[in-house]
Design a protein around this nucleic acid. Sequence first.
DNA 1: CACCAAACGCAACCGGATTGCATTATGAAG
DNA 2: CTTCATAATGCAATCCGGTTGCGTTTGGTG
Lengths: 141, 141
Amino acid sequence: MKTDAILSNLKEGGYRMTRVRRAVVAALSGSAVPLSALDLKTLLSEAAMRVNKTTVYREIAFLMDRGVIHEIQFGDGKMRYRVCPEAHHHHAICVRCSRVEEITMENDMKKHERAIARRRGFKVLSHTLEFFGLCNSCNGK
Amino acid sequence: MKTDAILSNLKEGGYRMTRVRRAVVAALSGSAVPLSALDLKTLLSEAAMRVNKTTVYREIAFLMDRGVIHEIQFGDGKMRYRVCPEAHHHHAICVRCSRVEEITMENDMKKHERAIARRRGFKVLSHTLEFFGLCNSCNGK
DNA sequence: CACCAAACGCAACCGGATTGCATTATGAAG
DNA sequence: CTTCATAATGCAATCCGGTTGCGTTTGGTG
């Protein structure tokens, strides 16, 4: 589990180690699926930890600012969060179980971005790419 | 302008032609940038048409159900809508002027989807891909 | 232990979107 | 032209994810 690595990094950065911070980082780094703010609050509550939703949102903002986590849009109006991977990548999101697989295709995307710049003078600064479908274990059920 | 074509299609489908429907379709098919529900309400109001926001939302749902328009996520918490193009495509969204250009790269995407299916058994049902950056006229300013 | 900023809790608030219900108006049938 | 069913509309209340202002608590250092 990379929870400890994240926490010690933050500690070295001079940030405080609070119960909420520990719990949020642990929940996010231990989850196979991206979590929404409410998901996090529910998880912590189930662990007998009383937390205010504002605190959850502020902890999310804190971790986002430090590049520890990033957000994913599922398209249902709720932001989901998960710990940042090493390199930029995309997601294959299972519409049944919500599990997320990471897809790397940066070489191809770079190629496309260059083509867009060349053909229409549009300078790409960022992009979002998500695949929705059925994961290996959900497919066929 | 394809407003008339859309409206006559709906009419043939047996749907009523109301002032709001006419105005919403005209606004969407005449706009270079995707419009939010509030954008639509404001536009209609400026055309001296008094409309309730609920009606706007319901008209959007109606047009979505019939495949006349589709929604785009800018990532700012507001859905935007625009008339469906003939073929599936993606967007290059200018972060300065919000203008949207259509990008077609379905052959490549199909290739990627097949690769994802082959390599990890993930069956892709749909995908979203948006490029954010500076359009030709905004770039360099 | 004392201190101060970071972190927290609470309540009120915001804005996009939805719902229930009563009312209006479209378009077809007579 | 009138009648009529129902699609469409308006209104008010509500939901829900997320934010803000402010007073209080707490982590961790001196």
